[in-house]
Design a binder for these strands. Structure first.
Length: 254
DNA sequence: ATGGCTACGATCCGTAGA
């Protein structure tokens, strides 16, 4: 089984790229972020024609997450229970006995800003909730744009980024805390090329210079990690005309 | 080099992303 996560940066703009990629890659479960589409306008029919059921929670202009699967999705829940938030960033659903959590973590803007404080509060609430989810579901997969580069090797130029948002110590601690409940960074279960990233700025020809960050992640419970045979970043969609600034991340589970 | 793109909803620029 193939799991994937992709921040599409507008599902409306990227719909054809997405359906083409689904045809080529044939993932079983896909988590999408930054759909930027209200639920009433979600492209249910186009995705159904591509062979996918969808559950989604979105809003105009900002945020929005969705889970696609090659079969029915059950026990859908939007948001972090008990964490009041207008921003559509969190969606959970079950695909068979697999529990899937799709996340679009706050950006944080700059260290010390209100948005940074919100990011850390969001991570605190996420941590507590995921611990409960993991207690209920041994087969838990958490996928999404987590907006944190866990280590310096996940940053193209650690000196330039030192202390900045996405790499600051409190953010890395927050992500480590989430992993500490019993989740593995699937990408680091395997030998990987140096300078592997999942996001590149649109500006400054960042993709061509491979000036990126690894901020999109697949986190697997112990049971799933033991059955994970590969985790890769698919850079192909980032090379297309009018791409998302993020590349999809994929994991194979036996 | 502190900007540089891109998407969006609002106008002909501001907000946000990371």
């Amino acid at each position: 089984m193939k799991l994937a996560t992709w921040n599409v940066n507008s599902l409306k703009v990227r719909l054809e790229q997405l359906t083409g990629w689904l045809r080529q890659t044939a993932p079983d479960v896909v988590c999408l972020q930054e759909t930027k589409v209200e639920d009433a306008n979600f492209p249910v029919a186009a995705l159904e024609a591509a062979g996918y059921r969808a559950t989604f929670t979105g809003q105009k202009t900002y945020n929005g997450v969705a889970i696609l699967a090659r079969g029915p999705l059950a026990d859908v829940g939007a948001g972090i229970p008990g964490f009041d938030d207008e921003q559509k960033r969190v969606l959970a659903a079950s695909f068979g006995d697999l529990r899937v959590v799709c996340l679009y973590a706050p950006n944080g803007q700059s260290v010390g800003s209100d948005k940074y404080e919100y990011k850390l509060r969001w991570y605190g609430a996420l941590h507590a909730w995921l611990a409960a989810e993991l207690a209920r579901h041994a087969k838990l997969a958490v996928l999404g744009d987590l907006n944190v580069a866990p280590e310096d090797r996940d940053v193209h130029d650690p000196k330039v980024w030192e202390g900045q948002v996405h790499v600051s110590a409190p953010e890395r601690d927050a992500l480590r805390g989430v992993l500490a409940i019993g989740l593995k960074d699937a990408f680091r279960l395997f030998e990987q090329p140096e300078k592997s990233f999942s996001w590149w700025d649109y500006r400054m020809m960042a993709f061509r210079r491979n000036a990126g960050l690894r901020i999109d992640h697949i986190l697997l419970s112990e049971v799933l990690a033991a059955r994970c045979s590969a985790c890769t970043i698919d850079k192909a969609p980032r090379k297309l005309e009018r791409p998302s600034d993020h590349a999809p991340v994929l994991a194979d589970i036996s």
